[in-house]
């Protein structure tokens, strides 16, 4: 799990152009949106692309975004649960 979380942080920085951050700047349980890292709705769409491109997981309903993309850990949990 910790390996997946570490990889995810690198991928998130890359996908969302967060070049001003280093992986260690993002806490495993830090909220990614609004009050946390300050991500927005476009980032949520980019994270959907990331899941599909890197992990072959399709998030069919964008409404699930807020729950799945809450923190890096929740994303990792979702990947672990849905990876074939």
């Amino acid at each position: 799990m910790s390996e997946l979380i570490a990889t995810l942080k690198v991928q998130i920085i890359e996908q969302l152009n967060l070049q001003h951050l280093k992986p260690e700047d993002i806490g495993d349980d830090q909220p990614l949106f609004v009050e946390g890292l300050g991500l927005d709705s476009i980032d949520a769409l980019e994270l959907i692309v990331l899941l599909q491109q890197q992990y072959g997981i399709k998030l069919a309903n964008p409404q699930d975004g807020p729950t799945v993309f809450k923190t890096v850990r929740t994303i990792a949990d979702y990947i672990t649960a849905h990876k074939k």
Binding site: Q15, N17, I42, L45, E46, V49, Q52, Q53
Partner: peptide, 9 residues
């Protein structure tokens, strides 16, 4: 197949 929206917007 799958494209990122940031450049589109």
């Amino acid at each position: 197949t799958i494209v990122s929206p940031t450049t589109f917007i």
